[in-house]
Amino acid sequence: MSKRVVIADDADFHRTVLKDILTKGGFDVVAEAANGEEAVSRARALRPDIVILDIVMPLMNGIEAAREIRLLEPPVKIIMCTSLGYEPIVEEALKSGACAYIVKPLSEKKVLAVLDGLKD
């Protein structure tokens, strides 16, 4: 069965690009969220295998969202999505429960390489 993914990014643009890449790569994007709060509630309700979180988002940022999502049972894999210039924050993100990260700009190769690298 294909893996279920929730994607969170405040830009519809990035969500759309990401969703297209993931769908093409055989993943099932079960929900999109436009801020951290939405990401947490979707992750709770839909129990995806993977959540991809943008860091800079309104209401609740990706790091705060990751801290909430990592508490869920069964565990959800968290991937952070950062922009260039934000590499230093990646460490904080990994501490907050993320297991991998993608640096924007998004490309099919980059995204699928990170997702395929996830251990089950």
Partner: peptide, 9 residues
């Protein structure tokens, strides 16, 4: 930040 990210992509 958003304009930067989208423009980069």
């Amino acid at each position: 930040h958003s304009i930067k990210g989208m423009s980069a992509s």
